[in-house]
Design a protein around this nucleic acid. Structure first.
Length: 840
DNA sequence: ACCGCCGGGTGCC
DNA sequence: ACCGCCGGGTGCC
């Protein structure tokens, strides 16, 4: 995701009041009057909210002032309220207040008002104020950080929130599955979140008062505890098991579920909300998540259920997916809880569900879906789930409720519960707004109210305010536990995966290949050397890339190399267009995973400029819009929006010679001898053969067929269905199924599971080492039972060796983190890379 | 509110 | 005095 998209997502909102997309257009000091008539108080520096009160019988312009807890403090003095009412009613601006001093005054107090709006409303707001004799000031402060650092920090927000959360807790005896260390840690943390008496984040006790350090709000009464939080572990770390362990280990009054049969005098029930839309059986990741890392899913569902027995037996065609989900959750309870323990589990689902508050209250665990909940909630009077005071509500796959305006979100927010949990593998999918919904659910005051969330967290963060970011970090840290498969516990991996060994196999070109290669290299060096001399390396970047691609292709197979279409001089506009399309196609198909020099992320909607540089369309359009005389960020040539040429899409390329005149290459030979040897040693071993060049994959198919290998293929051009079929075939270990998959480096999302493979052959080095790692992760992941062997073919004395050196350098750079790159630095880095590659 | 403002009482020095 | 001034009553919107 690009930064611009990230920011767009951060600021996007569905509602009318969009403080995040607004800028501060002015400020003024006003007066709050009528303090003595209201109970609401404020502290020095406390934020207040301003609420229009059009029905006020004394003044239809009335603007009420309320503190963070929503208690009325007073009114804005009427002279000022008059223009403010107009501005607020017409949505010309949002007005926010902070009381700078005078907080103990009896009758009135000052309030600093800031006006936030879209730039286009600036004049209207200023004029309206001026008409009433007020002049808005326009001096603002703020310590901002740059977008790169913001994005970086944002990306890291949920990284490894496990420090200080390494204390382990043994589950109750009722749990019969052994918990892994990281699951015991989660259990300990969750239990302490439920039982602790700590103040919620940002609250401090000061001389008998409770003080919110962000809003400066203080109360005598201890703020309500926030019991629960967000368990945001990666898929597959056993969130479900941990939650079941929590349910029985911290059952009631901080005591575990007793072993002996008993009737609980106090209903200690739990509502687990599930995500019904998941196509459970088809979603491998989800299945893996449910599997829990320590044990397998029982193959058959036991039909005799303990407890209430109110299970829906009727098959409902439309509910298959939810049912399989429930069955698996139910299985989990059965599987992880000792058979001699009685736990009443009720499935509140289906048309025949019993809408009895009494029945529900008597259960230990009630399972339902977001749909059922919101459909009950829609018929206001008849929502039994909303009439129960739950001990605990758990939102499974909690990130699915993130639009606070959706009915199901409202239904979730209205649930009464003592403790609240959100389970999610992706806590912030795209934006901070998602997090607002979660805060709302957790009742983490004052962030459960949109205004305070926006003012204190969302807007400051999106505007790059350091303090806002810090607050967000503290907030998330306080209530979230997240580990990834790569997290370490006391220096050991969280999840012990089989080993992963990397071998580099050096390939020596045949004399003939070497000769061809050297000739191309000499030519290339000459051209690039000239560009360096002329200082035009960047204006001819696409040509340079073309030369490099040709060299890399020679390393793989001479048949890959397309006819040279390099630096010919284009004449007519049509020829120029065609020329540019050739270039962008080349850049994108080069497998170099080109970054957009503006957002520094992978190219989205790639376009090429007349000066032959490729950017994301949104990024470069933004640049053109924001500058009068727009220039290319890489070469400073003048650019125009209408001169951007789009990438025409995957084009059928001239097929490589796969027919009669097929010939092998040193690299292909090396691969084949490996594959044959493997097959001889163990015919069940499966391999991934990875390349960045789909045409190389075409070429490799020939000897695979020749030697009678059964193989399948996965590349970016394949339709979703074909891909799924390819994966399924490959993963199936029955005889006759493919043992080799030809895989294009960037094919598919991260979710693809290819654990059937235990060998990976990287046919050509990638620019981006992370891409290689991700590719390997598709088989080296949960479910892999064998050690994974990775073989990287590198042609000796070639551009490939130089690429590996650059890879290493890049890796070091990444590890230093926060390597804030600017387009110009990037350019410099690119030039150095080219020098290194061509040995100039 | 130890203010401002209102409106009634009042009226040389 | 159709004023000024005094001092009591009063007080958000």
């Amino acid at each position: 995701m690009t930064i611009s998209q990230e920011i767009a997502n951060l600021t996007e909102d569905s509602g009318q009041d969009l403080p995040e997309e607004n800028v501060q257009i002015g400020s003024i000091q006003g007066t709050v009057v009528g303090l003595r008539y209201y109970t609401g108080t404020v502290n020095r520096g406390e934020m207040v909210s301003l609420v229009r009160e059009p029905q006020n019988p004394y003044d239809r312009n009335a603007v009420m002032v309320a503190n963070v807890y929503g208690r009325q403090v007073g009114h804005i003095k009427k002279e000022l309220a008059a223009p403010m009412a107009y501005i607020m009613d017409n949505n010309l601006a949002r007005v926010e207040g902070v009381v700078p001093y005078g907080e103990t005054n009896k009758f009135s107090m000052p309030v600093n008002l800031t006006f936030w709006s879209k730039e286009e409303n600036r004049d209207a707001v200023h004029n309206q104020m001026r008409r009433h004799g007020f002049k808005l000031g326009t001096e603002f402060k703020g310590s901002l950080i740059c977008l790169f650092a913001l994005k970086n920090a944002f990306d890291k927000l949920f990284d490894d929130l496990m420090e200080d959360k390494t204390r382990e807790m043994e589950p109750a005896e009722a749990v019969c599955t052994a918990l892994l260390p990281h699951q015991k840690q989660a259990l300990s943390w969750m239990t302490s979140r439920e039982n602790s008496n700590d103040l919620p984040p940002f609250w401090e006790e000061k001389s008998g008062l409770y003080f919110n350090v962000l809003t400066n709000f203080a109360v005598k009464e201890r703020p309500e505890k926030v019991l629960g939080g967000i368990l945001a572990d990666d898929m597959g770390l056993g969130k479900t098991l941990t939650t079941i362990a929590l349910i029985v280990s911290n059952f009631h009054n901080g005591k575990p579920l007793p072993l002996e049969q008993n009737i609980l005098s106090v209903p200690a029930n739990i509502l687990v909300l599930s995500f019904p839309g998941v196509v459970f059986l088809d979603d491998v990741d989800f299945a893996a998540a449910l599997e829990c890392s320590s044990s397998q899913v029982g193959p058959a569902k036991k039909s005799a259920k303990k407890g209430s027995g109110h299970f829906i037996k009727k098959k409902n065609s439309n509910t298959h997916c939810s049912r399989s989900y429930f069955i698996s959750i139910q299985d989990q309870f059965e599987q992880h809880i000792r058979a001699d323990v009685t736990l009443k589990v009720y499935l509140y689902y289906g048309a025949e569900r019993k809408r009895s508050v009494k029945l529900l209250s008597e259960q230990d665990v009630v399972l339902t879906t977001y749909n059922v909940l919101s459909s009950d909630f829609g018929n206001k009077a008849n929502s039994p789930l909303h009439k129960v005071n739950w001990l605990r509500v758990v939102l499974d796959e909690g990130h699915v409720v993130r639009n606070p305006n959706a009915l199901q979100s409202k239904a979730v927010l209205e649930l009464q519960s003592e403790r609240r949990w959100i389970l999610s593998g992706t806590p912030i999918q795209n934006s901070l707004k998602d997090l607002y919904m979660l805060m709302s659910f957790l009742k983490l005051k004052p962030f459960d109210v949109k205004e305070w969330w926006s003012r204190i967290i969302q807007r400051p963060v999106t505007m790059g305010d350091r303090v806002g970011l810090k607050n967000l970090q503290v907030l998330v840290k306080g209530i979230t536990l997240r580990r990834t498969k790569n997290s370490k516990v006391a220096g050991r991996m969280l999840v012990q995966l089989p080993e992963r060994r990397v071998f580099v196999q050096h390939v020596t070109l045949s004399e003939e290949e070497r000769e061809e290669y050297e000739q191309v290299r000499k030519e290339g060096r000459k051209i690039i050397g000239r560009y360096f001399e002329e200082g035009t390396i960047m204006t001819n970047y696409a040509d340079v890339l073309a030369i490099l691609v040709r060299l890399r292709q020679y390393c793989c197979h001479p048949g890959l190399v397309a006819k040279y279409t390099g630096a010919d001089d284009p004449g007519t506009p049509n020829e120029l267009r065609e020329h540019l399309i050739n270039k962008i196609t080349l850049v994108l198909n080069s497998g170099s995973d080109e970054e957009c020099a503006i957002c520094l992320d992978s190219l989205r909607q790639p376009v090429i400029t007349y000066c032959a540089h490729v950017y994301c369309r949104p990024c470069i359009c933004e640049v053109i819009r924001s500058e009068k005389q727009a220039r290319c960020p890489l070469c400073r040539a003048q650019i125009k929006t209408r001169e951007l040429v789009e990438y025409p899409g995957e084009e059928m390329q001239a097929g490589a010679a796969t027919g009669e005149n097929w010939r092998s290459s040193s690299k292909v030979d090396a691969l084949m001898s490996n594959l044959l040897k493997l097959r001889q040693e163990d015919p069940t071993v499966k391999s991934l053969v990875v390349s960045q060049f789909t045409r190389f994959m075409d070429l490799i198919e020939v000897p695979l067929r020749e030697y009678g290998f059964s193989f399948t293929r996965l590349d970016g051009t394949m339709a979703q269905k074909t891909r799924a079929k390819a994966i399924q075939d490959f993963q199936d270990s029955s005889p006759g199924n493919p043992t080799i998959m030809l895989l294009s480096l960037k094919a598919g999302g991260v979710g693809i599971n290819l654990t059937a493979a235990s060998h990976v052959f990287m046919m050509d080095p990638a620019w981006n080492p992370a891409a290689e790692d991700q590719c390997v992760d598709r088989c080296h992941r949960l479910g892999q039972s064998r050690d994974v062997v990775i073989t990287k073919f590198i042609v000796k004395d070639s551009v490939e060796e130089n690429m590996v050196k650059i890879q290493k350098k890049k890796q070091e750079l990444v590890e230093k983190a926060f390597g804030v790159k600017k387009p110009m630095d990037l350019k410099q880095a690119r030039m150095e890379e080219i020098r290194a590659l061509m040995e100039i």
